[in-house]
Simulated scan of single mutants.
Amino acid sequence: MRISIYWWSISAIESLEKKMIAEALDQTRGHRGATAKLLKIPRRSLQRKIKKYQIETQD
């Protein structure tokens, strides 16, 4: 039972994180540096998350 609750929590967090990144990228017109600053995370972390969640960006 704990495993399913834990898995659901991780899934929900990742879903929210993906949505926040996508929305921030839209707000900054795809500018990754500005997006990282807006989200208050390192640019490299943002790049890893974009790759992890397969978020489409304007390159």
Rank of each mutant, 00 (worst) to 15 (best):
S11Q: 14
S11N: 10
S11C: 12
S11W: 12
A12I: 10
A12R: 15
A12C: 07
I13N: 06
E14S: 05
L16S: 13
E17C: 03
E17M: 12
E17R: 14
K18Y: 07
K18L: 10
K19W: 13
K19P: 01
I21M: 04
A22D: 14
A22C: 09
A22P: 03
A22S: 14
E23G: 06
E23R: 10
A24Y: 05
A24K: 06
A24M: 10
L25W: 09
L25I: 07
L25H: 08
L25D: 08
Q27L: 15
Q27K: 15
T28S: 10
G30A: 05
G30E: 14
R32S: 08
R32C: 09
R32F: 04
A34G: 04
T35P: 02
T35C: 15
T35N: 05
T35S: 11
T35M: 10
A36S: 06
K37W: 00
L39N: 00
L39F: 02
K40M: 02
P42S: 07
R44L: 10
Q47D: 14
R48Q: 11
R48L: 10
K49W: 04
K49T: 02
K52M: 09
Q54H: 15
Q54P: 04
Q54M: 08
E56R: 14
T57C: 09
T57E: 13
